[in-house]
């Protein structure tokens, strides 16, 4: 009986990762530049060729995103998919996801750095910070 209950709890634990203490995104990722919402917007305005990559799910992306962003889920992020969306290794790219409780953009950023991209900007605060600061929203 007890072991069955433990098993149910274990399943619940798997089903609701939010119930567990979710790990935070790393503070810094080697090979990337961490930016705030304002810095991100400045970079977007300053670099016309910048690739903005939204690492979230498509449904979240559809509800609202940073103007000009490409939706590329972190699990789909690979040297190949990156090559399709980013012009070259010297082309700057900005990655974001939901925020500090989301590990998608950090994973994607690591993949990008590994793939040899040299100008990787990581917007750690992500969508939460963007909306909080009332930045322009596109959908």
């Amino acid at each position: 009986m007890r072991s069955r209950l433990a098993f149910v709890l274990f399943l619940l634990h798997l089903a609701f990762p939010a119930l567990a203490d979710k790990p935070l995104a790393p503070d810094l990722i080697a090979g990337t530049t961490r930016v705030s919402a304002e810095q991100a917007l400045e970079i977007i305005l300053a670099h016309p060729k910048l690739a903005v990559i939204d690492s979230r799910h498509a449904e979240e992306f559809a509800k609202g995103h940073i103007e000009g962003a490409i939706n590329l889920l972190d699990t789909d992020t690979s040297p190949e998919t990156l090559a399709r969306n980013v012009a070259g290794k010297d082309t700057p790219m900005l990655l974001y996801c939901n925020g500090e409780r989301c590990l998608r953009s950090s994973n994607a950023a690591k993949t990008a750095v590994k793939a040899g991209y040299k100008k990787v900007y990581w917007f750690r605060g992500g969508w939460a910070e963007w909306v909080e600061k009332k930045m322009p929203v596109a959908n």
């Binding site: 304002e38 917007l41 400045e42 009332k134 322009p136």
Partner: peptide, 10 residues
């Protein structure tokens, strides 16, 4: 100034 001008006001 700058990007601040892009923030919504309410």
């Amino acid at each position: 100034q700058g990007v601040e001008r892009l923030k919504a006001l309410d």
